[in-house]
Design a protein around this nucleic acid. Structure first.
Length: 188
DNA sequence: GACACGATTGGCT
DNA sequence: GCCAATCGTGTCC
């Protein structure tokens, strides 16, 4: 069952936690690739100095201010893409959840080729890695993830324990513990 | 118009 | 553990 729009109409931090264990699905040609979401981070609005949306709406971050349930994809470090899902409640005018890691399920052969045949444990365990494995680029920026199409999220597995940490790779907003993850060895 | 830097990764020490 | 790769974007002059 694909996640409905209402799922994303809650506090960005809550949605980040609740996305753990859900299934990310990407169709490439007539094949399906998928994985269980195991790590996420919340990035909110003007209350969050680490967020792209922390200052104002710009050309790059505009999707974060638009319809919830859509993909916010950005290009970084001159070579990698990162995938977010737009989510926020009515208190904020922007927000998104960064998908930082998935546990591969379907289409491992396709993903391996896109990742130059790396080891399975290195396939999709990072934000730049999973977009490469799933062929996600700026082409997918703004795509609606609540519809069955070439990129969407469905219900997944039941979660036991959620780990909470400060977010990775940021220099501001380090006081907020908005990185959430589950331990794959608990499930797979 | 210029310039510093980043929600990263992989390779080397 | 450290650092280069690589370039679009945002901010500042």
């Amino acid at each position: 069952m694909v996640l409905q729009r209402e799922f994303f109409q809650r506090d960005t931090v809550i949605v980040a936690k609740d996305l753990l264990g859900k299934k990310l699905i990407r169709k490439i040609g007539n094949r399906k690739c998928s994985g269980i979401i195991i790590e996420t981070e919340a990035y909110r609005a003007s209350d969050d100095p680490a967020s792209h949306a922390g200052i104002r709406k710009t050309k790059r971050n505009r999707i974060m201010f638009e319809q919830i349930g859509r993909a916010y994809v950005y290009f970084t470090y001159g070579m990698y893409h990162c995938l977010n899902v737009v989510a926020r409640n009515k208190k904020f005018n922007a927000g998104a959840v960064l998908i930082r890691g998935i546990y591969p399920q379907l289409g491992i052969d396709i993903m391996s080729k896109l990742r130059n045949n790396t080891k399975i444990q290195n396939l999709t365990n990072g934000p730049g890695k999973l977009t490469q494995a799933l062929d996600i680029t700026l082409q997918e920026n703004g795509d609606d993830l609540t519809k069955y199409s070439s990129l969407y999220i469905t219900n997944g597995i039941k979660i036991k324990k959620i780990h909470k940490k400060p977010r990775i790779g940021i220099s501001r907003g380090t006081d907020k513990e908005w990185n959430f993850s589950i331990d794959p060895t608990d499930y797979f």
